[in-house]
Nucleic acid binder design. Structure first.
Lengths: 340, 340
DNA sequence: ATACTATCCGAAAACGTTTTCGTGTTGAAA
DNA sequence: TTTCAACACGAAAACGTTTTCGGATAGTAT
């Protein structure tokens, strides 16, 4: 087992200075053909690789970006990581993944830890708890230190920085209007509590679509789910008591659960009831029946976020501090078997 | 925007030496109560945080581990990351995620890049291409440099290192026997090509179970899928021509696709045909009907792998080089609606 | 012989820490 | 008054690089 070899060791072996070794390896014209060959051969033999940490320290750049997400097991977030990773790799960056587990504290700890020079910038989506507390001091602090941050999906207006989002409001509006155009009047909404930013926006879009088409917004048709672990009973009650003609669910899990329960109640899909979900995940695609859904291209979001971050990193000081952009990724209603 | 403050700057402001500042912040008894307070107050005011890179260089430890996986959008791998992340965080480590995209080259590039001091150790699952080529030089090289590697799930006997696996063979054996005990004779297998190690092992388990119970292994009932993007037609042919009573699929996607096609052919599940999948993912759970499956606890695998790696890192040289362990994570047959 | 230029190489600083060792000051003991 | 210990702090090395600058040698032109 040969330990890692350094410039110093090579220099000593070959009886030249460290500078000479370094220059030889970088093909500097200062060095004679002779020594250059000698050094390079030796380096190759001992499999020399420059120490990235030393380089980072010298260059004040780590070539590493960090993505902080609430949960990795959500397919959407996994696709975002995938997009980030590809763009990052293409540009010579590595990706550090941190999970907040929807916890404010973990988010803070992660950021403070990494802000200590370990990485060049952040890409993040807020945890539920952070959105609820509306405490963003850890993020402003990082930004004030001159470290760029790009937020995606779950963002906040309280922070000035680059952002990548979809137009949640419009997407929900369009999905709702799709039902309205089919002639449905009793359109139910299964959504999250309001402090989850995207849930709120989607709820607003639904409400606006109903009002714009002179349909009354019936609170009995709107189910706001708090506990994401145990909500089957609530959905069942909604379906049985209200008998909606259509359901718009703000995520995949709600949608697929609604389908299961509809089946249990003996309802035919989409004959008796139509369903549209949100987030084009793997469940919607493979569900039986497959679920029509507002597709939210996670890969594209990740790619865009990474591009924005890297651009800011490479152009550094030259940019004026402000000039923050918010990119909106297009959504699309993917029609499958749960609607007609 | 205040840039990051360093020991040197604090020292200059307070007109003391760098050493004094460093010692004050670490509560060294060498420093008088007076200056200690002064320095600490100043440091707090300017929000001083030690530079992790400098520390890494000094300590020759980065407190970062890297996990290399073929694809992040596979739910199983996402759960593994989740497990790794938790254990790593508990022990003060960060997690770098690299995707090989099932490509040998990307795997090599990632490893060589990171081996240059950026991280302390690897956790990895081999890409398909690497398994096919059986070229592991990049891994041996890293190990020879003294950097610990823990392999999980897709492993190889050609490399000596710590490993975390499930008993794929036994799990497949048990699943097949489950069918046999129900009295089925025509049990089909939907699997991958043989160079994917886990696919091979599961195929072997199926074969052994059949033979042990005096059932003939009919090649017509075994479908080996190469192209994972386009296999619906093959499954349909299998179902229609062979009319199996039960199907064992080596992953979720194969299982759920079989279910869809069975439905299309008018077969009732599990009355006309029973199905068992592999990998306890989100699809199996939410599919209609939900799919019985061999559960492969990704979180547990990730946690175990991280623990093994960190243990090796902390105990370092003191350990003898060999003494590599292979941990087997238990699997379990989760019965759902696709069997009875 | 002198001056100048190329050519080749080494010393040292810098990045931000921690830590060892040395040193100056003070007070008390001899 | 001398000696010694305790105390408080600073200098410098070390981690592994890159890069600037200066210096030595040799060769060429005057």
């Amino acid at each position: 087992m040969k330990r890692k070899v350094t410039l110093k060791q090579i220099a000593k072996e070959l009886d030249v200075s460290i500078s000479t070794v370094s220059k030889s390896l970088r093909d500097s014209p200062e060095i004679s053909e002779d020594t250059r060959q000698k050094v390079q051969a030796f380096a190759k033999l001992y499999n020399y690789k420059p120490n990235n940490i030393a380089l980072s320290l010298k260059n004040k750049k780590t070539k590493t970006i960090c993505i902080i997400i609430p949960e990795i097991i959500h397919h959407f977030f996994a696709t975002v990581i995938s997009g980030v990773e590809h763009v990052a790799n293409e540009n010579g960056y590595n990706v550090l993944v941190c999970l907040s587990d929807e916890s404010f504290d973990k988010e803070v700890i992660n950021m403070e830890m990494l802000a200590g020079g370990s990485i060049d910038g952040f890409i993040m989506s807020l945890s539920k708890e952070t959105q609820q507390k509306r405490d963003f001091h850890h993020i402003t602090e990082v930004i004030n230190q001159g470290m760029p941050v790009v937020m995606f999906d779950r963002v906040t207006n309280d922070i000035l920085c680059d952002k990548v989002i979809i137009d949640d409001n419009l997407a929900a509006y369009n999905a709702t209007r799709f039902f309205i155009n089919k002639g449905y009047k009793k359109i139910a909404l299964i959504t999250t509590v309001d402090y989850v930013s995207v849930g709120k926006l989607r709820t607003d879009g639904y409400t606006k679509a109903m009002m714009d088409h002179d349909l009354k917004v019936d609170p009995n048709l709107i189910l706001k789910i708090e506990d994401t672990d145990n909500f089957d009973a609530q959905i069942e009650t909604l379906l049985r008591d209200q008998k909606p003609e259509a359901i718009f669910a703000v995520n995949e899990i709600f949608a697929v659960t609604a389908i299961k329960i509809a089946g249990k109640l003996g309802l035919q899909i989409p004959t008796d009831i139509s369903i549209i979900g949100f987030t084009d995940g793997i469940i919607s695609k493979y569900s039986t029946p497959s679920i029509s859904t507002v597709s939210q291209n996670g890969v594209k979001m990740g790619e865009k976020a990474a591009k924005m971050l890297i651009e800011r990193l490479e152009n550094e000081e030259m940019e004026i501090e402000e000039h923050y952009k918010t990119e909106v990724i297009e959504t699309e209603l993917v029609e499958r078997e749960s609607t007609h």
